[in-house]
């Protein structure tokens, strides 16, 4: 996992050169014997490709408390749980565990279905674009903000990343479903925070990564209507999409983490 012993953990996330002065360097350094190395990690797998969780957990418990703490600070408390579970799932699906494969497929299908539901409600979902201006009033009337219209029109152009069809026009009709209104009200707030999340990282110089973060948070807001979106969630979701290439994986890891942190984000908790 770690390439450079003695290097700062920050070296794994490329910071934009012009922001180098603004980013404080972490005190956490990768130490031989104290940090879980890629060699140790790979050695924990059986020849059949199964992860010996006991072996790795005892290693984790014995010597790397500090590392975990530091990783938790950076990535949230579910980091190891998620990584280990993912490794386990991957092993199972690589070999003969049909259940594992199905589970993995199901999670992807489930995410795709959720995302499609959202795209039908608001065609910018999955289009590679996103908005940071309100699209709806609390009464359900659509808002014709020039910034929103510009993004919507751009998304419809054939050169755009997404597949917004001609039937998916942004219809300017009053929305009556309270759940849909609530969800649409969250979209611009997510956009406003996406453009302010980890902006010192090279990763977010790519528009596609910004819209990926927006997509996942928007889908989550629909998936968990009680929590919806609350400021702070973008910072927690960000490491997931940096670490995991697959958007569905990133979503479910974020969802799992939110299960443990949800009490921080309910409507009565922000007091």
């Amino acid at each position: 996992m770690w390439r450079n012993y003695g290097a700062s953990a920050d070296s794994f996330y490329q910071v934009r050169p012009e922001c180098a002065d603004d980013v404080p360097e972490t005190k956490f350094r990768i130490k031989v014997g104290k940090t879980l190395s890629s060699r140790r990690w790979h050695a924990a797998f059986t020849p059949e490709g199964y992860l010996d969780i006991g072996k790795i957990l005892s290693r984790v418990c014995r010597g790397v408390r500090e590392s975990i703490h530091q990783l938790e600070v950076k990535f949230g408390s579910s980091y190891w749980v998620v990584m280990i579970q993912r490794a386990h799932l991957r092993n199972e699906s690589n070999y003969d565990n049909v259940g594992g494969i199905l589970l993995s497929l199901l999670s992807k299908v489930h995410y795709a279905a959720l995302k499609e539901e959202c795209r039908v409600m608001f065609p910018l979902i999955g289009s590679g674009r996103f908005i940071s201006a309100p699209v709806i009033t609390e009464d359900g009337d659509p808002i014709l903000d020039p910034i929103v219209l510009q993004e919507l029109n751009a998304a419809k152009e054939p050169t755009s990343v997404g597949q917004v069809g001609p039937s998916d026009g942004f219809e300017l009709v009053k929305e009556h479903d309270k759940k849909v209104i609530q969800w649409k009200l969250s979209l611009h707030q997510i956009g406003l925070d996406v453009i302010r999340t980890d902006r010192t990282l090279v990763f977010y110089e790519k528009q596609e990564n910004l819209s990926k973060l927006w997509d996942i948070l928007a889908v989550y807001a629909w998936f968990d209507k009680e929590v919806s979106y609350c400021q702070g969630m973008s910072d927690l979701c960000s490491p997931m999409i940096i670490l995991l290439d697959d958007e569905a994986d990133a979503f479910w890891c974020f969802e799992r983490m939110m299960k443990r942190l949800v009490h921080n984000f309910t409507r009565t908790a922000c007091v």
């Binding site: 922001c19 603004d22 406003l192 925070d193 302010r196 999340t197 902006r199 010192t200 400021q231 702070g232 973008s234 910072d235 922000c270």
Partner: peptide, 10 residues
Amino acid sequence: FSLESKSTIG
């Protein structure tokens, strides 16, 4: 002043 400032929590 920071162009990369995060959203304020709480």
